[in-house]
């Protein structure tokens, strides 16, 4: 059963140094307040897995030296261009990148969700992704002749971390139509969620809300973090802070600028 943590820091305790940490794409509820808390804590050797892409969250963690490896289909700041600390770390050989493609991440998490060792996926054959992924296998479809197909091992993350609109006292979390959060929580051993607010009734008592609710059964910790996705959007609640993200892109372009960003917005907390 989930517990409502007294503080953000307490909620993040399951995210141990060296763990495999699963995080969602930019518009799916990224726990940015929690990410800044991880940087302040000095988290180390995280094996980050993005579902299926990441942006400022991965860039911030990588630039802060929190990341040993990242598995992602893409890391970028979208319209603002490349993710600068990610690109710099890769060029310097400082992090291990496990390049993949979006549906491969979804499928490998679904394998974990089902408790099966792998799932097959079409495409991929002839891509250099396969060459650099010794953990993937190509077999001949046993139900046909001469039909090669790629097998992806289940991804079994230690912790899934995301931000959602609301939870209740039982740790049920309302995610709405952002269903990949459900898959993430099912696939991970533990799930940590930050939310905007606590809902007074049990979310599972209302059939409309229940359809978009992740049961507290899967959730280890919930912390309340108003505007916890800032500067990213929490769809339906607030938009991306374009000006701030542009400032991040500008500062993070250099190591010195990135250090300045951390001083301004991460180490000394500043109201969103």
């Amino acid at each position: 059963m989930a517990t409502i943590a007294g503080s953000l820091e307490e909620a993040l305790a399951p995210i141990a140094d060296g763990c495999m940490l699963l995080v969602p794409r930019g518009n799916a509820g990224v726990a940015m307040a929690a990410t800044r808390a991880l940087v302040r804590r000095g988290a180390k050797r995280l094996n980050l897995v993005a579902v299926p892409t990441s942006g400022i969250q991965a860039d911030l963690l990588i630039g802060s030296g929190c990341v040993e490896s990242i598995e992602a289909a893409g890391v970028s700041l979208g319209e603002l261009g490349p993710a600068p600390r990610f690109a710099a770390a890769v060029r310097a050989g400082e992090i291990l990148v496990k390049d993949t493609t979006c549906p491969a991440l979804h499928a490998a998490l679904q394998a974990s969700e089902k408790g099966v060792p792998f799932l097959p996926l079409r495409g991929l054959l002839g891509s250099d992704l396969v060459k650099y992924r010794p953990d993937w296998r190509v077999i001949d479809n046993p139900f046909a002749n001469h039909d090669p197909i790629v097998l992806l091992p289940a991804i079994k993350p230690d912790v899934a971390l995301f931000h959602a609109p609301m939870a209740d006292a039982a740790g049920n979390v309302w995610i709405g139509a952002t269903r990949e959060l459900m898959t993430m929580a099912h696939a991970a051993r533990a799930t940590v969620v930050t939310v905007e607010t606590l809902h007074e009734q049990n979310l599972l008592d209302d059939p409309v809300l229940a359809a978009g609710t992740l049961a507290g059964f899967y959730v280890e910790k919930v912390a309340i973090a108003p505007r916890g996705a800032w500067p990213l959007a929490l769809p339906g609640h607030y938009a991306r802070d374009e000006a701030h993200l542009a400032e991040y892109a500008r500062l993070a372009a250099s190591a010195e600028g990135f250090a300045r960003y951390l001083d301004l917005y991460v180490h000394e907390r500043r109201a969103a």
Binding site: T53, A73, T100, S127
Partner: peptide, 21 residues
Amino acid sequence: DYRKPKVRFSGSFGSAYLYFV
């Protein structure tokens, strides 16, 4: 070189699948 590239782009996104199907 893939392991120590001159330029690193964002990543393959859905291309390695969607290009086939």
